[in-house]
Design a binder for these strands. Structure first.
Length: 164
DNA sequence: ATACCGGCTAGCC
DNA sequence: GGGCTAGCCGGTA
């Protein structure tokens, strides 16, 4: 495991912690966390040698190598292609990855997302339009992020194709 | 192999 | 709409 750098970067959703290596961004967390808390997380990921970098920008690429399971990596990659201002359902993502019906498995893949924010798992919602869970800050934060991106969230719900 | 788990869904009140 | 239940699937112990 190479030495990682990390910084508190300004994003469209406010300050977020990012950690990266030459292989790409490998960890992220909301900026409300203290530096110590984020570094502790890096420790858990085996990035104990991470050092603070104040000027460097995190790379564009994302490192999914720590994600267990080919299906989960595939799902996260598909998720990263969801445009800002749009949403997909867990089921749609499952179908796109060749496993229609694996909506629940997609949910667990989202929960394994090493770089929330960068891989926009907040844009994945339930089939009935309810927002669903968000492990990187809860459904409340999920809603805030979607609204900030211009998604119409009404009464904790988002418009989905058929329904409305 | 086998049992259990989780950011889900579909069907039925 | 809400609440509940039983299926569902990939992954892990």
């Amino acid at each position: 495991m190479p030495v990682a750098s990390y910084s508190l970067a300004q994003t469209a959703h406010g300050p977020w912690w990012y950690a990266w290596t030459d292989d790409g961004v490998c960890a992220a967390a909301q900026g409300e966390l203290s530096e110590g808390e984020f570094v502790d997380r890096l420790d858990v990921l085996g990035l104990a040698e991470a050092r603070r970098s104040d000027d460097a920008h995190p790379p564009e690429s994302v490192d999914f190598s720590a994600v267990r399971g080919a299906f989960r990596r595939k799902v996260l990659e598909a998720c990263s292609r969801i445009p800002e201002g749009e949403v997909r359902t867990y089921g749609q993502l499952a179908a796109e990855c060749g496993s229609p019906g694996a909506a629940r498995a997609v949910g667990t893949a989202m929960a394994q997302n090493p770089v929330p924010g960068r891989v926009p798992c907040h844009r994945v919602v339930r089939g009935d339009g309810h927002l669903g869970q968000y492990s990187a800050g809860g459904s409340v934060r999920k809603q805030e992020m979607l609204i900030r991106e211009g998604v119409a969230v009404d009464d904790g719900r988002v418009p989905i194709g058929s329904a409305e």
